[in-house]
Amino acid sequence: MTARKDMLVIEPPKGWQPINFKELREYRDLFYYLVRRDVQVLYKQTVLGFAWAILRPFLSMILFTFVFGNVAQVSSDGVPYPVFSYVALVPWTYFSTALTTSSMSLVTNSNMLTKVYFPRLVFPLTPVLAKLVDFVIAFAFIPLLLLWFRIMPTRDVVFIPLLIIILMMTAAGAGMWLAALGIQYRDIKYATQFMTQLLMYAAPVVWSVTALTARLGETGRLIYGLYPLAGVIEGFRSALLGSVPMPWDLIAVGGASAFVLFVSGAFYFRRMEVAFADVA
């Protein structure tokens, strides 16, 4: 056999597999076109198109302002409730849509899964990237809101990319776990729908961590920080609204747990992926 040829050996799977970054790189064009597809078809045949990216968090903002800001009188650390909730809703909406789509990615693409080979990790990771487009559009609306409420963002905005990375790792990590489980156990679909609702109220979207710290103390705050969305959302508020100091403690703890979630998700996914085509 000539040496210049690509040699490929197909053998029965053996346990845990590392992530094949070389292969993922070879398929970067596919990645690009799948992300592009997801973005392109998202608002096809809608009247408002990409305006929905702003409208969804915006409408939630109005609802939350009424229910939690006015009726329930939830504390918003001294900033107007609409902007307090919108700044949290932007990362939250990204997280929940990326997570839901990612966790269902194998089931919705099961046709592709059983017909063609490419690195399976492409499936759950595609929505994590594709939903960034919505995120950016919704994010671009924040300056207008700040202008309207005459709020000056702090210099900490430079840390927002870091927060976005933590957010993406969390969505991707949970997405890989749930996708790998969901292809075999379709219960995951229903569980995820319910869980994202629960996760929203668990995240400081409609309320502020300040109140929680007051009740649970510093240790309780750090344990809560294991939920990566806590540090991310509070970080957004701190950077854009200056209502609280940058919550580095939450970000550090949350970042670590996001990293663990991401790596474990990738390994679990790689371990299970050999069976995907058989159970799909």
């Binding site: 056999m1 000539t2 040829k5 690509d6 040699m7 490929l8 050996v9 197909i10 053998e11 029965p12 799977p13 899964l113 059983t114 017909k115 063609v116 080979y117 050999v274 085509a277 058989d278």
Partner: peptide, 13 residues
Amino acid sequence: RITPPTTGRVLLS
């Protein structure tokens, strides 16, 4: 490579 074999192996060049 859509589904892995249970036994044996394949060499593709």
